[in-house]
Design a protein around this nucleic acid. Structure first.
Lengths: 133, 133
DNA sequence: TTAATAACCTATTGACTCGATAGGTAAATA
DNA sequence: TATTTACCTATCGAGTCAATAGGTTATTAA
């Protein structure tokens, strides 16, 4: 299950893309449009800034904006950043301890084949694919 | 992420398929072969019995056995039973409250298309596909 | 210069899940 | 009748999830 962190992050990205007019978009506006607690969103956009997805500016006239064009973001990178990993099972996550049963594991291919499918799907989707014109 | 419940359940199914000789297989043996705590497996096989995947028999000579042939089990049904749902996001899980934003949600198709892919993948895999000859 | 705005920071919360462990009871067979 | 085995209930510590709360710093417009 993808948690609110990943899901809300994508909605923030879409909102920023749809309301991009060169200026910074205040989180207050995004929170109102998306009907998500602004306080909770703060935590999420903080990670998005740290991860290089968006840029923030303090003070009056401040807010957030995208760093790239919508077609240059993949959904996969957003989810992976926010959720920590896209892996279906723990042993396939980045930085996981090597599994001692890997050589004889009869389910490894099941999971890794699916992970490939998942990776291709989400890295094949771009932010621009989600934005309404 | 698929938890140990789903993953261990599949390994139990594979173990039962590979050691099926008509008799019941004691959980002690499965636990030893799979290197999983027998006590913990008890919780898991209990759900598997309740879900109609396997059958248990008490007493000496007892244990567990499959109810169908390996080719008549799909991986999807095992995971879905053990994890409760195969859904990627909460709003698409069976019995979820209808989302008030569904009509205008710009991410719904993203998730439901992926869920279809996932469903097809896991319901397309059979237990017999995982068993070594 | 000051008031307003908005990001940024740290901490805490309650509910829940995860992955087990523990100890006991009932059933079936050799 | 002793042994084996499933079956049952309860509990646990650690962690995650989805927020809430309150304060500080940065920036700009009046």
């Amino acid at each position: 299950m993808i948690s609110t962190k990943g899901r809300y992050a994508i909605r923030v990205m879409i909102d920023l893309a749809e309301h991009d007019n060169g200026t910074y978009i205040p989180l207050k506006d995004i929170a109102a449009r998306q009907e998500i607690s602004k306080k909770y969103l703060e935590i999420i956009v903080k990670d998005m800034v740290a991860g290089g997805l968006i840029k923030g500016a303090s003070g009056k006239g401040g807010g957030y904006k995208l760093l790239r064009k919508p077609e240059d973001y993949t959904v996969g990178e957003v989810i992976e950043l926010m959720e920590g990993s896209l892996a279906t099972v723990a042993c396939l996550a980045e930085g996981a301890a090597p599994c001692p049963r890997a050589d004889t594991c009869e389910t490894l291919a099941l999971w890794s084949d699916f992970d490939k499918l998942k990776h291709d799907y989400f890295y094949g989707k771009r932010l621009s694919d989600l934005v309404k014109q």
